[in-house]
Amino acid sequence: MSDTGEYRGKLSLAQLFIIFFKAGCAFGGGLGVLGLLEEELVTLRRIFPDKELVTLWSIGRIMPSGTMSAVAVAVGYRLCGFIGTIVALVAMILPGFLCCIALTIGYTYLAHGSVLDYIDATILPAALGVVIISAWRLGRPIMKPSRDLLFAILACGAAISQQVNPALIIFGGGVIGAIFLGGKKEEPRG
């Protein structure tokens, strides 16, 4: 990860707002949002290396806050300073916030209807698609036979079993990584 100065001035506040607003329109929770951020910042604009975004996300996961709040603050700060953190946060939460309020106002009409079932059957699988693409794109750097991949598989298994808190899995990954992955970078086999 590089120093913040390297990123300053690459985006205006308006561009930052548009990128985070678009990301905030993604379904699929934090990973859906992360997927759209990856598309804009890594794939299309090439502002961030892919590993940097996933590292920020990892650090965000061990923060006592919503993961994407921490990511928005970190990315906004790197790109546009403190004002960038506010712009990124506001832009990211605005679409979901307004939808939530609108649907809360419509509580009387919607709570007992089938609208939510339709949304579940259509938006949720599309959001799953976004999450799969996001996981694939962000995980690509370690998708080769290595100890990193082994760690990822173990973490995945622990999380699927739902016996272990995700924050603990990430924290444990950091501690074990400090012990076993601190040497020279492992060359991929094959």
Binding site: I62, A152, I169, G173
Partner: peptide, 8 residues
């Protein structure tokens, strides 16, 4: 390690 766990 954090990154690998996050991908998992």
């Amino acid at each position: 390690g954090l990154t690998a766990a996050s991908v998992g």
